[in-house]
Design a protein around this nucleic acid. Sequence first.
DNA 1: GGGCTTTGTTTATTTGCGGCACAAAGTCAG
DNA 2: CTGACTTTGTGCCGCAAATAAACAAAGCCC
Lengths: 413, 413
Amino acid sequence: MKNNLAPLEPKADKATVRRHNLSLVLRAVHDAGESTRAGIATHVGLTRAAVSSLVEQLLEYGFVSEWGKTSSGQAGRPGTVLKVSRSGPAGLGVEINIDYVTVCVVDLAGTDRVRLVEHFDNRGVQPSEVLARAARLAARAIGSAAEQDLVPAGVHVALPGLVAGGTVRQAPNLGWQRVAVEGLFAQALLALRPAHRPLPVSSDNEANTAALAELWYGAGTEGVRSFLYLTGEIGIGGALVLGGELLRGAHGFAGEIGHMVVDPDGPLCRCGARGCLEQYAGQAALLRAAGIDADAGVQGVTELERRARRGDPAALSAIGRAGRQLGVVVSGAVNLFDPDAVMLGGVYRELMDWLAPAVDRELALRVVSGLWSEDGKRLRASSSLGDAARGAAGVIVREVLADPAAYAEREQG
Amino acid sequence: MKNNLAPLEPKADKATVRRHNLSLVLRAVHDAGESTRAGIATHVGLTRAAVSSLVEQLLEYGFVSEWGKTSSGQAGRPGTVLKVSRSGPAGLGVEINIDYVTVCVVDLAGTDRVRLVEHFDNRGVQPSEVLARAARLAARAIGSAAEQDLVPAGVHVALPGLVAGGTVRQAPNLGWQRVAVEGLFAQALLALRPAHRPLPVSSDNEANTAALAELWYGAGTEGVRSFLYLTGEIGIGGALVLGGELLRGAHGFAGEIGHMVVDPDGPLCRCGARGCLEQYAGQAALLRAAGIDADAGVQGVTELERRARRGDPAALSAIGRAGRQLGVVVSGAVNLFDPDAVMLGGVYRELMDWLAPAVDRELALRVVSGLWSEDGKRLRASSSLGDAARGAAGVIVREVLADPAAYAEREQG
DNA sequence: GGGCTTTGTTTATTTGCGGCACAAAGTCAG
DNA sequence: CTGACTTTGTGCCGCAAATAAACAAAGCCC
């Protein structure tokens, strides 16, 4: 009777209703792209009067703006066009990766308004040094944003590693261990802008925010709200999106697909175990199998693609083998999670043409629900429109959209 | 901008608030076991006046009942004791399995009030025949419940197979394919009780409801709200619970762990693929490896346990090997899903003592977050208190608890 | 220009919670 | 035993936010 109590959600009252409907209307305006009070009212089921009142408040706070009248050839009085404001609150996303840092500012409508990239090999550099560098870039982005009347509501930092509770537990590719990123980044940013109010800082795994970018900004995946996202880089990152929500797991470490097992007695992995997927389908393994220098990095992958395109047998068989192993593991993940689609990102995107058939074959063979083969487009390359930085910025944007009242109170009160 | 729109949730108004708070108070009473209006008020954050009004309504509908006064030695006026009603709405759970059918009625407090089991080999029998048999048992259970003033609010049917949208897509162990269980069961039940209002019928995978039973009624797992549940039977069933919610996947087929891959070139599985976990750690494989007749069923497992207890080397090595393979696959699932715990049910429960060390070793080696070894109790045998039928009944109970107003309206209006 | 339609606002009404006061029913100190 | 104190549960009033209905505004169409 007292077992495994679900924590009770907070009570509801008038204020809750208002907050909820405020967010509802804002998101309706967001999703419609262009709409009127009356349109929103019929869409969300509120009366026109209620929507009017809510929109008035959203206008006041600067979340939406009016854009003249609808001049459609329809009968009746034309409505006032509502759009999500192109100025005001925005999201700031930071991606810290092996050899670059990307910072971007996304407005409420979801468009990328500022983007700064700095190439620099972060391996072996002191974390605080890297974070300070990222903070400088972020500060510049905030400046550019201000020129467009955009004010970041928060920063979300994405990193390649296990991150939870504001700290990087480990990031093997960066060589980091137990780094309090949120604190360090906030500190560095505050030092650069001492006059300003500190920006709320949050952090996440890079694969997670990349998956969210795919969800929110990806092209050609309309209606896909549950998918497994894989990104082949130095390591293999993964993330799970279920019903439009990121699956973070009990401690925030979900999605680590790179160390699922292909062969329990396979080659030793740097994680200490044997036969991890990374040793078969990771970038280094892929290049090595094709007879290319495994440390060649991005150039190596382009070279591999070139050879595959030429029909080089060694390249094709290397990709095919990796694809099969990838398919074996991914089919397991699909059996566990039953997603709508599997998206391949990172280096897999370039190799998709040769990789996909092998992966798909294993999926069709091994996915037990028998649903895999029924329609063809369930294995896809990830869209180029979403990257980890944009997803990170999107996290902030979604927070504002989910509770505009909270943001407004924070700013005003 | 118009990408992957999340469906907007319904608007909120006064009625929504009332429904929400009604459920909140009811669940608070449920969780506390015994409480007073004032206690609930401070716990959920509402005023005593509001709670009074809500409780009055819950009393009227029969969800809670008063049980005299608190006679604690505390100063102040004693409060009226509130408990979840032991009569009124209840949950009816039906588990249809290979060689038995279990039906049980669970009251709002979560106690098992009626339980009927019928042993019968359902393999190869016409689905409609099996469902009719189950419906007869269910009708008897409804009768017994009525004698205790319990009225089922709905039936939830659990089956060993892929079930979604009210139909069993396939249940290899029963030999079923595309059976519309909900419709057939509802029809059979209605035929037995023509005078009564038809009971809402829903259905689910048996592993899913077993996992929910573990969540709601299991012992010794307080605070564990995210776990991977495995049940070794003829096949290997699995389910994922995340933050107290069952993870069903995009089509309802999540949790199929039995066909994750141990060795891509391993023995052929009846699913058509090679090297599935089931071929290594399934009941048949386990018995065969230990030199016991694989068709011996439950007796075979008891025999295996006896031999293991005696120290029979063949038995121990068979279990150890299966444990290792199980551990390999489960570690992959843990990396992907990052649960709090892994629960082993079914035949694994009896073999836990010899199985667990091997499984745990692989987990400690392969779980990449490095969290596995930090505390010891993350691999557990599932509790004996929860079975699939009870979990199924619990699903109905939770529905009522989640929206008592809806239930009351359905009954009254 | 008058009828029709649609939009957005205004006004009155409803409803559910918060705040406060108060009666009820106990404990505790002397 | 009695009065001070504490805690519980319940009226009563006010407020906020949504609904309902009426109305003015601003276009189409004949």
